[in-house]
Amino acid sequence: MLDLGNRKSIYQPEQQGLKFPDLPEFDTPAEERKHRKERLVAACRFFAQQGFDYGFAGHLTIRDPERPELYWTNPMAVHFANVNMSNLILVDHKGQVVEGEYAVNRAGFVLHANVHEAHPDIIAMCHAHTVYGTAFCALGRPIEPITQDACAFFEDHVIIGDEAGAVAVENHAGSNVAAAFKGVKAALHQNHGLLTASRHSIDSCAFWFAALERCCQQQLMVDATGHKQTYVTPDRARYSREHVGSEYIGWLHFQAVYEQLAKEQPDMFD
């Protein structure tokens, strides 16, 4: 174990006075709510940028800081690229829209509401029907530690095989997903797709979703070569996960994404 002192990560500079992202602090719940909604919108735009759209499929959520029994999410049948501050909706665990003009995605409500309700510590969730993640989930296999990037998920993801392939539109369907998210940040829902959850931020949740999709792509590419794979040893995989796979690191990665999106797509704040 490295002695990081007061730092959260080895990536935080020891040298004082350098520009480096700081974790936000808020004086009021309203400030935190605005921040969370901005980052939720940015996460949706990021998903559009990454090509994670598939019609109306895909849903991202973040708890309201003042009313944790409610969560903000993207509106039904609005493309990720068109999500902005004004069309987000606030939903309760029964699937009722408390604030906003749009309907909620039924499958999103079933999956996310069950997880949020079962795990008060989870504040954000992401799911989308991606090409490589969906393909890899059909194999019923875990992410193998074949790269440093893949080590970020070593012993930190699960495979959910129950009700594999059945669309989650009935309330009970989300219970198995909720049960699986105990102490992990990601799940491979067999014959369905990827899910990530965060106890830290929507920033972290969105980045690790994109990273998981990338790992699925890399694994499928390596499999396609037909060559024997070389694995990172468990001790080294855990070491890498500690330093490159934390919630904080996911948040830190997303800061570069957010700054670029804010510069290129200012309409997301409308």
Rank of each mutant, 00 (worst) to 15 (best):
L252W: 10
H192L: 07
I89S: 03
I146F: 09
V222Y: 08
I146C: 10
C215K: 03
L4G: 09
D121R: 09
H116R: 06
T28V: 08
T225P: 07
I202E: 06
G174I: 05
R214N: 13
G161P: 05
A42V: 13
E264A: 14
T196K: 04
T73E: 09
R214H: 15
G250W: 00
S240E: 12
S246Q: 05
G95F: 10
E247V: 01
P120L: 06
I146T: 15
C215T: 04
A124G: 07
E32D: 04
K182Q: 15
F153S: 05
A179G: 11
G140S: 05
H253L: 09
R241L: 04
C205E: 06
Y239G: 01
F56A: 15
V158K: 13
W208A: 00
A173H: 15
T130R: 01
D203A: 13
T28S: 15
H59D: 08
C44Y: 00
A206C: 08
R7V: 10
A152G: 09
A173T: 14
R36I: 02
G183W: 11
H172L: 12
V167Y: 14
P65H: 05
A107T: 08
Y239W: 13
I10M: 14
E170N: 15
A224V: 07
S240W: 13
Y239F: 14
I89T: 04
V232F: 07
E32V: 00
T233K: 13
G245L: 04
G161F: 13
F46M: 12
G174E: 07
H243L: 13
A48L: 04
Q16S: 14
L261K: 07
G55L: 03
T28R: 10
A187P: 10
C151I: 11
G133R: 00
C215E: 06
V110L: 06
A173E: 15
E31T: 01
P120W: 06
G100C: 11
